[in-house]
């Protein structure tokens, strides 16, 4: 009898030890695979959280079909249903996108909170729509959307969306820069000058983005790695500079910023000093505003426009010029 007891206890101790050891390793590996598991509902769902979420999703669709719009009366119900779906399946991308946008007007803070949860979910790290929508709701729908904190969050979300979309969608980039500009405008100064208007702020935002892409972030706007993926930065900076100058052609601060931007960003480009339009080699006056511009790209000997190393009119070699 005692021998039997000893053998059983021995087998139990060894097997518990082995299963504990294996189980610990598995838990660790599982955390790596199921990254969003910590977000799961704490209700004992018997491991059927995903299925519960699917069923609740279809009921949610059904419910949404039964209401005309999300209003004060049903907003809590919509939020509650959506929250339950996402607590049971934090990886449910469609629920974030559709559900949160349904809440965006009536309960933007909740919608933003849901979207930020989705944006921070590592399993949804390939989705740019969720952070974009989060940024959009924070920047436009939240009542206190002028609050710098909200703007900063919105900017962070837009930046996340930019990083995740490759190549970044034009409207995503635009939303990021406009939010950044709004924040700069609220602050009132940038690069040592006072912000004159929204277009000036937009230019500052682009200039800062350009600087950030070179790992310099004087504004602390959260640039840095990733923003390099925004293509065509020079052209956009130029367009912003043009808009800024046109909006306040006599403002010293604007002009100072424009000069800084042109000298730093567009130093190699030939721009009309008046309207900042690009002009072509050999042109003496700006084709947009008629202002006199500095001639370039002509043969020193005969004044003809150069098409290559040698002048096509006189054969002069422009190599050493």
């Amino acid at each position: 009898m005692n021998k039997r007891l000893v053998v059983h206890v021995l087998v139990m101790v060894v097997s518990v030890g082995v299963s504990y050891w294996l189980g610990s390793g598995l838990l660790e590996t599982q955390t790596g695979i199921a990254k969003s598991r910590s977000e799961l509902s704490k209700a004992p769902m018997g491991g059927f959280n995903k299925f519960a979420s699917d069923v609740q999703w279809m009921l949610f669709i059904n419910y949404c079909g039964s209401i005309n719009s999300v209003n004060e009366e049903n907003v809590d119900e919509v939020y509650s249903r959506l929250d339950t779906i996402l607590r049971n399946d934090p990886d449910f991308e469609k629920a974030y996108n559709i559900g949160a946008m349904m809440l965006a007007v009536q309960a933007p803070v909740r919608a933003a909170e849901i979207l930020q949860r989705g944006a921070n979910n590592p399993n949804l790290s390939s989705s740019w729509q969720i952070p974009f929508l989060a940024g959009y709701v924070l920047a436009h729908n939240v009542k206190e959307s002028d609050d710098p904190q909200h703007l900063k969050k919105a900017e962070e979300m837009f930046r996340l969306a930019v990083r995740r979309s490759s190549p970044p969608e034009r409207h995503v980039v635009s939303s990021l820069l406009r939010t950044k500009a709004k924040r700069i405008e609220k602050r009132g100064d940038a690069f040592g000058v006072k912000i004159a208007n929204d277009k000036h702020a937009y230019l500052c935002a682009w200039y800062d983005e350009w600087r950030s892409s070179r790992a310099t972030d004087e504004l602390g706007g959260g640039g840095g790695p990733g923003t390099q993926i925004i293509g065509d930065v020079d052209a956009r900076v130029l367009a912003a500079a043009q808009d800024a100058k046109n909006s306040a052609p006599d403002n010293k601060d604007v002009l100072k910023t424009v000069d800084t931007v042109i000298s730093k960003v567009l130093a190699n480009q030939h721009l009309c000093p008046s309207c900042l339009s690009r002009y072509n080699p050999g042109e003496k006056f700006c084709s947009h505003c008629g202002s006199e511009v500095a001639i370039y790209g002509t043969c020193k000997k005969c004044g003809a426009v150069l098409k290559g190393r040698f002048c096509t009119d006189c054969g002069h070699d422009s190599k050493n010029e």
Binding site: L40, S41, K42, A43, P44, M45, G46, G47, F48
Partner: peptide, 8 residues
Amino acid sequence: WFAHSVIA
């Protein structure tokens, strides 16, 4: 059921 709901 509860063994499947350990996370909770």
